[in-house]
Design a protein around this nucleic acid. Structure first.
Lengths: 153, 153
DNA sequence: TATTGTTATACTCTATAACTATA
DNA sequence: TATAGTTATAGAGTATAACAATA
């Protein structure tokens, strides 16, 4: 047996094991994309979750808070302040729900419509930039496989 | 033009646009995997980041806090408490760095070695379960593409 | 009885500024 | 002058319990 060098320094960090784990890689990739998303959405005053909420309202006018929560995995108490703030900024309006007196239907206000036209365009452009590290086929494959991971059947 | 139904209810939420965005899909997939990771690591008293830290120390004995931070994207002030707690649990030990008097080399203590043998085995098994939603080829492809996204060149 | 929206609150995670000791 | 580790602290994100109004 060769005597071990005591307390040797690490020159290059070996991440081989962590890189075999899907969770590690998915989290690092998500953080890398969000890191670019943050400054791109800052001019609109939107953080990622706020963008997601407004995007769902855009494509689902009349959606309720409850539906937003279950779709995005947000807890109801944590959505209250966000919806309130978006309403205060006059980006959305709350209308009575047609069939459920407890709920409100959320709709884009005119300012919100204008904002989201630009913001979704910016998001799509950003997507193209991030995707430039991949071929179009690779990006489609990546998104398809990610969906298989999180879409429970 | 057909008159719009005012304030109609949303029956099924349309997530088509968000699902075109890599960041949205990567975040959802990462959360889905971590959701399974949490209870699997709970018996070891490890949260995801603590597992990552211990795994890096396992495969890089003598690694410094600074190297852990830059590898995992953690800020130094947020690592101090974690390293202190792991040391207090006698999972790791800090030894003087051989060449840098400011730094410490982090090493697994005997209890940490035993814990990580089991924990990394559990992580690998969990990986196989999550991966059962994908074929082996799909999993390899997915991890390769995720690395392309977050590994800056 | 169950659900929607809400308040209050606590806990975790992440971020910034400033200090010390060593390089 | 720059860097490793640290302290204190602030902010963002996420969690549970409990309530009023409505289903």
């Amino acid at each position: 047996m060769r005597p071990r060098t005591p307390a040797a320094a690490v020159e290059k960090v070996d991440t081989a094991f962590l890189e075999t784990l899907l969770g590690y890689n998915a989290r690092r990739a998500a953080l890398a994309v969000i890191e670019e998303f943050l400054p791109a959405m800052a001019p609109y005053g939107l953080r990622p979750v706020e963008f997601s909420v407004l995007s769902l309202i855009t494509h689902n006018p009349g959606i309720t808070s409850r539906q937003l929560c279950s779709t995005l995995g947000i807890l109801p108490p944590n959505l209250v302040g966000m919806v309130g703030a978006l309403e205060k900024r006059e980006l959305i309006v709350r209308k009575p729900h047609p069939r459920d007196g407890r709920a409100f239907g959320l709709h884009l206000a005119p300012a919100g419509q204008k904002l989201m036209r630009d913001a979704e365009q910016t998001a799509a452009t950003l997507e193209a930039n991030v995707a430039s590290r991949l071929t179009p086929v690779e990006l489609r494959t990546l998104i398809r496989l990610l969906k298989k991971v999180y879409q429970r059947d």
